[in-house]
Design a protein around this nucleic acid. Structure first.
Lengths: 197, 197, 197, 197
DNA sequence: TATGAATGAGAATTCATTCAT
DNA sequence: GATGAATGAATTCTCATTCAT
């Protein structure tokens, strides 16, 4: 109101949307869909609750938007056509590297359920895409010999990464506070054993 | 059979408690703490809602009882002093064998949070005990050389098992419907790579 | 069960009734009708809850029985045809004397309401009878000159006694712990001023 | 008038709070804390139940607010430094004068208990303040000769006023419908006898 | 666009009462 | 006569959502 910037921001629909999405992702990832209240999210975002319904129609709409966002970002960042031997390192970096907080939120979000049909479908799509990428890196193609097991192994890899993320946020020590250096060795063993062609 | 059994069960406090516990475990494991209503549980158990408070004081009390139950059962069934080379097979059997449904519920329950202090402590204790057992099988002793990494690897093993359980219940195919035969190979690779001494 | 007396008592309907009545009077007087639970009463009496319904039909029935009991006892003990000058002393003794606890319960009970028609009528009857006795002691007769004010003064006297009882149980000091000696002077002044013919 | 007033009132938080407080005072005073349901209060106030929790956090919070309100109003209206000889008249006016309804509610509220620690403290404070005022009017000062009895007499005066209020709302006739003229005589006798220096 | 007041559905819990033994 | 298991009706409170400004 006083400064023009504040006044502008205050009425910037896109910015408000962004604030809400960021707060929602954090909350949904940390506490789960049902345990999160729209008031929590609005407070975190410093925004009026009613705007959630205005911009996302409903709590479910907001959750779907969060999932879609995760899909987009993973789609951009998760290495497509990454050489197989770099994958273990890449996963270790995602789980314990400098941006781990952001990735953790994304993976956790993929484990949260709202019960809503549409959201479940989005989530399943993302997981499938994710697994396909990993499988592709190991030489998987639809119909190729051993395609079934290759896909299975890619999914188990994904599952392991998610389980690790989950237990790391359960404060199980020493796993929870292990740094990138400590994690890399075991993870390389793990992913190499699963994904070697 | 119907009449007399029904009549007998009808006033058997211990049986009612058991029914409630079983229903609660299923619901909490499947839907999470907050999304589960005590009415759901009571209906599943075929029992009046008020009995939940009578026998378990509160929804939280019921949840704690579920966790404690899981701790007891895992304490009895998870092989202590199992030879290292049998562990992958044992885990594969638990994840995909004939009793997999029951184990799945137990593992999922360990990933559900109620926000309650006490429940969190119980859960953490169970996870820790579980990891200790695995670590011990790999030769871990407190203070032994490489103890830190051995424990870390045991926890990563546990985390992988949980992640796999989680994605299996997310109907991610082919992982979700993979049978014991298909899982054993990849799991042996995975757990061997993580736990070999 | 072991001794015959215990065995007898345990199955003595009259004794059970008495125990329940005594416990109920204390609870209703102290906490009021609604705030008292039948379980509180049964526990205090050392008796199974279901017996309240068996012997008194309902919680309301029990309350009515308490009131009726108070009516009977006051009917017996509140001096009829007591010389006027003894009344202040008598009231002081009731409020602060050795049996004050019992009288306190009776007066408080007369101030508790259950909302039940019938109970209200009983209560009103007792109050009226009580006031009539006091009025009679001051020379009141129906139709006598100044009958209206005499009755009014008797009722104010009763009201004062009740108010004092009430504030004494609100732990308002020094009133709450004042003994008979300290109370007698002020009470004599009070009741003399109100009741002198 | 109807539309515009209703429209205005409809979104006025302060007015809603006031409506709720007024309804709550009436209900709590008449029926007691436990017997009053928040739904009763909301209905009386013509307001949605959830607003009770919004504005007063809980039923107990609303009760405390009622008590605090009574404390404030009595603090303003109960004559401090009122000449002793005017007090009986003043009390008679409060008990039976034109605003008697409002005073009756305030006094009754001071006799209702919620069991809540904090509310009890508020109530005790108000009673004590009230008694102190009366005592002061009779020349009481802390430590003055006869201070103990003076305070005791002030509290007995207060108790009498409350008892009278209570029996007046119990429809004990003629006390319940006695007007100011009829009450003044007896009350002057009563309070003069208790408070004369 | 943003705000905060208001709403209604639903959740957990308590409680008097009934029933079977 | 006594017990404790079971029931259904309430009660308080929370929460997503809508409305008026």
């Amino acid at each position: 109101m006083t400064t023009s910037t504040a006044g502008t921001r205050r009425r910037d629909a896109a910015a408000t949307r962004r604030l809400l999405l960021a707060a929602a992702r954090r909350r949904f990832a940390a506490d789960g869909y049902t345990a999160t209240t729209v008031r929590d999210i609005a407070t975190d975002a410093g925004v009026n609750v009613a705007l959630i319904n205005r911009y996302f129609t409903s709590k479910e709409g907001l959750f779907e938007a969060c999932l879609t966002g995760v899909g987009d970002e993973l789609g951009r960042t998760v290495a497509q056509d990454m050489p197989l031997e770099r994958i273990p390192l890449d996963i270790a970096a995602r789980l314990a590297g400098p941006d781990a907080g952001e990735y953790r939120i994304q993976l956790l979000l993929l484990l949260r359920s709202s019960g809503d049909e549409r959201a479940e479908r989005i989530r399943a799509d993302i997981l499938r895409t994710f697994a396909d990428r990993l499988a592709t890196a190991t030489g998987w193609r639809p119909g190729v010999a051993g395609a079934g097991e290759r896909m299975l192994r890619a999914q188990i890899t994904l599952a392991s990464a998610m389980g690790i993320t989950l237990l790391r946020s359960s404060t199980l020590e020493p796993l929870a506070s292990a740094g990138q250096e400590e994690l890399t060795g075991p993870l390389r063993d793990l992913f190499t054993a699963l994904l070697r062609p």
